[in-house]
Design a protein around this nucleic acid. Structure first.
Lengths: 332, 332
DNA sequence: CTGAAAGCGCTTACAG
DNA sequence: CTGAAAGCGCTTACAG
């Protein structure tokens, strides 16, 4: 096994001191051009690369960001991470991706490891079970900025970057409204989730904004399968009427679409379908599903710029909401 | 910002030496029970956690594995990573996930960073553009085992863990055969990919194993859209016959399914569909698509045990092929 | 312009 | 059973 090149080795070969080599390599003004040239040449030759552990031990900084998500099998998080990585690369930070598996215990371990590694900052979508946010606040105390995204705590005074749940729901509701559809099934997620509450409330509100008569049936599904069953049981009452189904999330949309295929119904004639999505699932069907887009990519860009402001010293906590836009498929 | 607890701080408070604290903490037999008790107590109280940078600098070991994949938006990789993380956690290793974005340059950067970090080992699915595998072999020289999985280089003498392309293709072909279907459309991926070649060859071979008459049309699609277009243009010739479509991958399946929905055809009566998949996409349709399963999870378990054997000193390079199994949907 | 020295937080061979 | 010391590879204030 070949030894790694160190400053010492370069210094010895050039018969100069380690300090000089170190300075030459970082283009310190004190060092003569001639020395710099020699040092750079040799370090190229020997493929010198500084030992990050030594640097960190010395400087207490890692130039690393951590992104923590409950799950990776999620297009939304995937595009969020892409955005972070793009930005990070430009500033020669690296990005470590952690997966909490939606388990608060694992989340705590990850957090601890982030602290020990003295990462420069953390982007995190918390688990649905996370109750104690004390450890997150403590990291801020330790000088490690924490930016919450997507799944964020209730607690007020922290940095949060969220999808505009209300906005997305209102876009979807408006589209239904504009199509003159007055029979609507709304399938929402777990009652206890804050995004369910936000989306439901706004959806309802917009749909009833005029005093137009509306026949709205709202239900909750905790899984794709449940959404499928609910859709199957609800549709019969709507057959023959002009109606639409709103799916609050990709998971629900997947279940609903299975039911629709099972019943052999065609969009947009037999019924309309509209969702809120990051855009992968809706594109698997024909016609493609119309949806209000929640973009992980946008969210990532917003989160990153917030992070850089924190690193620059801003201690002001802020909640940023990303707006969504309607993406037309042919399903409604 | 609160300072981190160090060995020194504990030693001072207890008026003993740093060495003793260090030893007590790792339950060294030399140290008296009494001292151990005191040290452990105080370190609990002060929430002592060793500085990983210092340890690494000293011991040259990181207890960290790297997993490098071209993309995260891929259920297969996701389940591979899950398997690795499970195993790693048991041995208190941590796992860093890197994404090469299918760019060999980024892949090289990641590799370099793995080397500097002296990760304990690397699991990697290389990019489709990766030609130079020299740097990977060099890592082995540096004592960092590299296990290739899924997308592996041609080069013989390295550790590779692969999906059984031939086996999966033969399972799918056999199922078509067993159903007595003799008109078949086979949609394959990019001609240049080794998995395309392996799958195509075996599929063809099994389908023609008896001398039964077979009407097989094989085409290549580079994208989901292309698969959709091909399906649309090929189906008319098969309508009325008893026929099936084989989709080599999820990407192709997604395109083909869009075409089928567009034409309003029903499985399994109008046609049969069968694929090779990790199982997420097939479950989005009704009826669910029958597929030969390539399990990222299995692959991960296999890769991990291979890794541990490498770390234990095995230098013998090995190629391991994971078998697949048929998962019945109702599509054929 | 260059170098010697201290120190980041740990581990471990050596000495007692 | 415990401690002093060296050293992992770097950076940087200090001195010249």
């Amino acid at each position: 096994m070949r030894e790694n090149t160190t400053l010492k080795k370069i210094a010895e070969q050039l018969s100069i001191s380690i300090s000089t080599v170190s300075r030459a390599l970082k283009d310190h003004p004190d060092i003569s051009p001639e020395t710099k040239r020699k040092v750079n040449e040799l370090s190229e030759l020997l493929e010198y690369d500084p030992n990050p552990y030594a640097i960190n031990l010395r400087t207490h900084s890692s130039k690393e960001f951590a992104v923590v998500v409950p799950s990776l099998s999620n297009f939304f998080y995937h595009s969020f991470i892409s955005a972070i990585e793009e930005e990070a690369r430009d500033l020669s930070y690296s990005v470590i991706i952690y997966r909490s598996s939606n388990d608060p215990k694992i989340e705590q371990q990850i957090l601890k490891s982030c602290r020990h590694k003295r990462v420069s900052g953390i982007f995190i979508a918390i688990t649905s079970e996370t109750t104690d946010i004390e450890p997150f606040l403590k990291l801020d105390t330790h000088g490690i900025p924490v930016i919450f995204f997507d799944k964020v705590p209730q607690y007020e005074s922290c940095n949060k970057i969220c999808v505009g749940d209300e906005h997305a729901a209102s876009i979807a509701a408006n589209e239904i409204f504009k199509k003159g559809i007055s029979n609507v099934i709304g399938i929402f997620g777990d009652k206890n989730m804050s995004i369910t509450q936000a989306r439901l409330k706004k959806f309802n509100e917009v749909l009833f904004k005029d005093d137009k008569e509306m026949n709205l049936k709202m239900v909750h599904a905790k899984s794709s399968d449940e959404a499928e069953q609910l859709t199957l049981s609800l549709i019969p009452d709507f057959i023959g009427k002009k109606f639409a189904i709103f799916c609050m999330s990709d998971e629900i949309l997947a279940g609903t679409m299975k039911a629709i295929q099972r019943l052999g119904l065609k969009m947009p004639n037999d019924l309309g379908v509209i969702g809120i999505s990051d855009g992968m699932i809706p594109k698997l069907f024909y016609p493609e599903i119309t949806y209000a887009e929640t973009s992980g990519y946008n969210l990532g860009k917003l989160a990153f710029s917030r992070m850089m402001r924190c690193i620059a010293g801003s201690s002001f906590a802020q909640t940023i909401i990303d707006e969504s836009k309607l993406v037309q498929g042919g399903s409604i």
